[in-house]
Simulated scan of single mutants.
Amino acid sequence: MDIAIIVIYTVALLIIFLYSLAQLNLLFNYLKSRKLDDNSPTFDLSKEEETPYVTIQLPVYNELYVMERLLDNIALLEYPKDKLEIQVLDDSTDESVNTTATHIKQLQNTGLDIKHICREDRTGFKAGALKEGLKIAKGEFIAIFDADFLPGKKWLLQTIPYFKNDKIGVVQTRWGHINRDYSMLTKIQAFALDFHFTMEQVGRNYKDHFINFNGTAGVWRKKCIEDAGNWQGDTLTEDLDLSYRAQLKKWKFKYLEEVETPAELPVVISAARSQQFRWNKGAAENFQKLYWKMLKDKTVSIKTKFHSFFHLLNSSMFLLV
């Protein structure tokens, strides 16, 4: 028994040490990235011929108290109206369906191309809704926002230009927190998310390691989604799943730390626990689904495989500690 305990303890310490080295490497990458100028090619959106068609998808489910704020905020985005489509992918089962429909009609009267799409069943949940909307999306690029996100007016003008590089499949922005100081719980969540959205996302992206679309506040190239196998609902984190499948198909991701997209953090412990459960279990599911395929891919560097191991099994650190 003593030997077994020592072996388990030693293995746990070793893996935690390797995880710490991975995080230290990301810190070095982050600091190096700060010294570089971004010379990425960009579209000139002042020219009509360089302005692509964009579809905004808003997947929602029983968001009665934030729907009006969400729709009004999205309507303020600056982009040519003749090249912008908005899809409200509404899987709601409460009274918000009717109030949302009424608000959408009001926005349609202003000339906004906005559609209310309701499914008969919620097969695939969010992934299913996004996939359903994609079938009829007019846009070459698909921007996605969850109900509690409030992008700034110039958000599309700050993100869409980077797709001039035809290898870019995703542009992801940094989350902000409009209720960071509400309580100790929100402060802790904000700290943890800021760590991910600065050091981890930047550190991985700087060296072309796999990063993830964070489920919202980002833009996909429609062709990239289709090439990677489209949205799939067999894990709790469909965003991470599609991100890895896209990068295994050699699509590049562009992370914009300087573009902040504000959102609300969960203010009660039950909601925070539910969110953390979904993220941690979903990452582990994606490890089971995709890591062996990644491990066998000789075109993926050993260092990227190393970082992806800890990216997907991040939740195991709690168990090991």
Rank of each mutant, 00 (worst) to 15 (best):
D2L: 12
I5N: 15
I6F: 10
V7L: 15
T10G: 15
L14M: 13
A22M: 07
Q23G: 05
Q23C: 07
F28C: 12
N29S: 15
L36G: 04
L36E: 15
D38Y: 10
S40F: 11
D44N: 15
T51M: 02
P52Y: 08
Y53E: 13
P59S: 10
Y61S: 07
N73L: 00
L76V: 08
L77V: 04
E78M: 05
D82H: 15
L84G: 10
Q87V: 04
L89Y: 05
D90T: 00
D94I: 00
S96F: 00
V97E: 09
N98Q: 14
N98Y: 11
N98C: 02
T99S: 09
H103F: 09
I104Q: 09
Q106I: 05
Q108G: 04
L112T: 05
L112D: 05
I114G: 03
I117F: 06
F125H: 14
A129W: 01
A129I: 01
G133L: 00
L134E: 11
G139W: 02
G139F: 01
F141E: 10
F141W: 10
F149P: 00
F149Y: 09
L150T: 12
P151L: 01
G152H: 03
W155N: 01
L157H: 09
L157R: 14
Q158I: 00
P161F: 05
Y162W: 05
F163H: 07
D166A: 11
K167P: 05
V170N: 09
R174L: 00
R174P: 01
W175T: 03
G176E: 02
N179F: 02
N179Y: 10
R180D: 05
Y182T: 08
L185C: 09
I188T: 14
A190S: 14
D194I: 04
H196G: 04
V202C: 06
G203H: 03
G203Q: 03
G203V: 01
N205D: 12
F210P: 04
N212L: 02
N212M: 06
T216F: 00
K222M: 06
C224L: 04
E226I: 15
D227L: 01
D227E: 12
N230S: 15
D234V: 04
T235Q: 13
L236F: 15
Q247D: 08
K250F: 11
W251I: 00
K254P: 02
L256P: 01
T261D: 12
A263R: 11
V267A: 14
V268G: 14
V268R: 15
V268D: 15
I269H: 13
A271G: 09
R273M: 12
R278I: 11
W279L: 13
K281Q: 13
K281D: 06
N286F: 07
Q288R: 13
L290N: 13
L295G: 08
K296G: 12
T299L: 06
T299P: 10
V300S: 11
S301H: 08
K303M: 12
T304H: 07
F309T: 12
H311Y: 11
L312F: 02
L312G: 02
L313F: 04
L313Q: 08
M317Q: 13
V321Y: 13
